[in-house]
Amino acid sequence: MNLTVSLALLLLALAIEAGIGYPQRFYAAIGHPVTWIGKLITTLDQWFNRESDSFITREIMGVFVTTLIVVAALALGAFIQQLCLSFGLLGLIPLALIASTLIAQRSLYEHVARVAEALEREGLEGGRQAVSMIVGRNPQTLDEAGVSRAAIESLAENFSDGIVAPAFWLGLGGLPGIAAYKAINTADSMIGHRTPRHLAFGWASARLDDLVNLPASRLTALLLAASAAFDRSADAGGAWRAVWRDAGKHRSPNAGWPEAAMAGALGLRLAGPRIYGETHVEDHWMGDGRAEANAADIRRALTLYKRSCGLLWALAALLAAVTLL
């Protein structure tokens, strides 16, 4: 697949996902491609991550399993892509339908919007319940500002991981590219944590996830900062300053970029110290604005997010047009 066709596929997939998302009846009937990947990873974790093995053996097994997952995703993606394109350009339609299931524009918006709605209608307890569906931190430790910041941070980080990165790899590598990316990202979310069980076994997936998310995290910051220039309630200059000053201080090599851009654009402080389960995590603040966020700030973040999605579409269209010249 050449770059022009893969970019056309990207535009179709983005439009389909924004329009219909992944219908709940499909999820109830057959699950979701990410849950299928997750089941494979769970099985491989049980088979190859043996606590009786040495640290180095578990590291090697982790490299093997990560490689296996990526190769399987590439192979399946290539097979489906070849099958669809055997019908000519009309094959782009089913191919785009399949690719759209691996992008999350619509569902991310809906999940974050529910937090704002819960805070507005049900107060703090409703907000805590809604935000617990999208973040891993202990919701009972969060006040209204903490719930609001958590929702905005999740929006910023998942804009990078759930939309821009899949779009980047789809545009660059077609269905095999996005399938491999989602396999890596899912593996990192399941076995990439620095827990005793996965410290050795999950090392490879965690480092590979950092690598494949590196270009998208920078692009996400750029999109958010550029979008702020078209939003009277946002500050593009503040976004650029926060990224320049704070992004590299985040404990994640990638999450700091979209979080800093979002914080600076909205005049907020994001990240900082927080609690995951029983674990207290110290992290630098992103941005130098106010920490007292609220539901209205979540709404502002969602507006900026929608504009940034629009810019992503425009960028894909521009690149597709350039490749035709």
Rank of each mutant, 00 (worst) to 15 (best):
K182L: 10
A314D: 03
I134S: 06
I80C: 09
E17A: 11
A228F: 00
T67I: 13
V281P: 01
T186A: 06
G91C: 11
Q81S: 15
L102E: 08
A200S: 15
T67Y: 11
E278Y: 02
F26S: 09
E125C: 04
D209F: 08
G162H: 03
P94Q: 11
V281E: 12
W47P: 00
G177R: 07
S233H: 13
L10E: 07
S160V: 03
A234L: 02
R137Y: 09
F55K: 14
E59S: 08
A8W: 12
L319P: 01
L302T: 00
L325Y: 11
I30A: 14
T195N: 11
C309L: 15
L211V: 15
D283M: 03
L97R: 06
L211P: 05
D297N: 04
L302V: 03
R197D: 10
H280P: 03
E120S: 13
W36N: 08
Y276D: 09
V5I: 15
K249L: 15
P258E: 00
L223E: 00
W47N: 08
A72G: 11
G173I: 05
K39D: 07
S100I: 04
I69V: 15
A118L: 05
D231R: 08
I16M: 09
V70M: 12
R207N: 14
D288I: 10
N2W: 09
F64N: 03
L325F: 14
T220A: 14
L175C: 12
R128S: 04
E278V: 10
G173Y: 01
E292L: 07
K182F: 08
R241W: 02
L222G: 02
L170N: 06
R274S: 14
T42Y: 12
L76E: 06
E110W: 06
D231P: 01
W313F: 15
W285T: 05
I152N: 01
S189D: 07
V115S: 01
A229M: 07
H111C: 02
A314S: 13
R307E: 01
A156S: 10
I16Y: 06
F79A: 15
T186K: 06
P176W: 11
H198N: 15
F201H: 08
A15P: 03
A78I: 07
V212G: 09
A229T: 02
S227P: 04
Q82C: 10
I275G: 01
Q140Y: 10
A236L: 07
A118V: 04
A226E: 05
A295P: 02
V131M: 08
T141L: 05
V135Y: 01
I56T: 14
E110I: 12
V70P: 04
Q24L: 13
E59K: 14
G192K: 03
G256N: 09
L315D: 02
T4N: 13
V34H: 06
